[in-house]
Amino acid sequence: MRPQATMIVDSHAHVSPCWYEPVETLLHHMDRHGVETAVLTQMIGQVDNGYQQDCVSRYGERFLSVVWVDAQAPEAGATVERLAYAGAAGVRLRPGACLPDGTLPDVWRAAQQCGLPVSCVGSAEAFAAPAFAGLLAALPEITVVLEHLGGSSAPVDTDEALALRQAVFSLARLPNVMLKLPGMGELMPRSPTALRDGEPFGGRSHPLVEQALVAFGARRLMWGSDFPVVSAREGYGNALKFAMQSLAGQPAQALDDIFCRNALRVFRER
Rank of each mutant, 00 (worst) to 15 (best):
E141K: 10
E141Y: 10
I142R: 01
V144E: 00
V145D: 05
V145H: 01
V145Q: 03
V145L: 10
V145C: 13
V145E: 08
L146M: 11
L146W: 04
L146G: 02
L146R: 01
E147I: 11
H148S: 06
H148N: 13
G150I: 03
G150H: 02
G151V: 02
G151A: 06
S152Y: 15
S153D: 12
A154C: 14
D159C: 14
D159V: 08
E160Y: 10
E160G: 12
A163C: 02
Q166K: 10
Q166T: 12
Q166F: 05
Q166P: 04
A167S: 12
F169L: 11
F169I: 01
S170L: 07
A172F: 00
A172E: 03
A172V: 06
R173G: 14
R173F: 00
L174K: 07
N176C: 11
N176H: 15
M178H: 13
L179M: 07
L179C: 09
K180G: 01
K180R: 12
K180I: 04
L181D: 05
L181N: 03
P182C: 10
P182Y: 10
M184C: 09
E186I: 09
E186A: 11
L187F: 04
L187T: 00
M188T: 10
M188P: 11
R190I: 14
T193H: 14
T193Y: 12
L195A: 09
L195E: 12
L195M: 09
R196N: 08
D197C: 15
G198D: 06
E199W: 01
E199A: 11
F201N: 05
G202V: 07
G203H: 04
S205R: 06
S205G: 13
S205P: 02
H206V: 15
P207Q: 08
P207C: 05
P207V: 11
P207A: 04
L208I: 06
E210W: 08
E210F: 04
A212I: 02
A212N: 07
V214R: 15
A215P: 01
A215C: 02
F216E: 04
F216N: 05
R219A: 08
R220Q: 15
R220N: 13
L221G: 00
L221P: 08
L221A: 08
